[in-house]
């Protein structure tokens, strides 16, 4: 009881600026894909259409938020020696739940996403956030961090999905933007390499637009 009290007090105390900073870090300055370049495999695989990219983004936001929150809740009673196993187990619970629900109510989408929802379990972003943030920070802040990182991932996926669907198939969310008679499907953008190029160019543009980072001190 006292533990939870302490937790909520610290969280209220730090609400304003720290919260905003966490969101900014997750979405922009420390974006998991653009800056840390992790979680790439799923980003390559599911971005051929905007719709799948969006669903995958939502899946990651949900699982990241929930697992960060719960991990932070039990961080003080988790024995350090088995913390990694606990992290993985916690992530898998949420991911499998999401996968099952998707299969039950949104079958077509689940078929298109294939194994990639299940593979969120091994996604480096989640593991990294749990290990690097949720273990040291109070639950609500961890929840915000998980959400922010999920959002950062989802935003990049949405942009890449937009570009690939538009260039690759000339449509957006399944509606034809360019008539089929004029537009020729570009297979490279329909297939995974298109995501490589789009993401590489995106990172290039973001890096070129933002001011040069100060060199890290060793």
């Amino acid at each position: 009881m006292t533990a939870t009290n302490r937790v909520s007090v610290t969280c209220v105390g730090c609400a304003g600026s720290k919260c905003r900073e966490t969101i900014r870090a997750g979405v922009h300055t420390n974006n998991p894909i653009l800056v840390q370049v992790i979680g790439i495999c799923s980003a390559l695989a599911v971005t051929s259409k905007l719709e799948t990219a969006l669903v995958m983004g939502i899946a990651l936001i949900l699982t990241a938020t929930l697992s960060c929150f719960f991990m932070s809740l039990i961080r003080n009673i988790t024995p350090p020696r088995i913390r990694m196993i606990v992290e993985i187990a916690l992530i898998s619970v949420f991911v499998i739940c999401f996968d099952q629900i998707l299969k039950a109510v949104y079958w077509d989408m689940s078929k298109q996403l294939g194994p990639y929802v299940g593979l969120i379990i091994t996604n480096c972003i989640l593991m990294g956030r749990l290990e690097g943030f949720a273990l040291q920070n109070p639950p609500l802040l961890s929840l915000v961090d998980g959400f922010a990182n999920g959002l950062g991932y989802a935003l990049v996926l949405a942009i890449v999905g937009c570009v690939r669907e538009l260039v690759g198939s000339g449509s957006l969310l399944g509606f034809a933007i360019l008539p089929e008679s004029v537009y020729q499907t570009n297979l490279l953008f329909v297939l995974a390499p298109g995501a490589f190029f789009t993401m590489g160019l995106l990172i290039w543009i973001v890096n070129a637009a933002s001011p040069p980072k100060p060199e890290k001190k060793p």
Binding site: Q184, N186, L187, L188, F189, L191, P193
Partner: peptide, 10 residues
Amino acid sequence: CFLLLGYPAA
């Protein structure tokens, strides 16, 4: 390479 992989049929 881009053309070959992007528009193989054409």
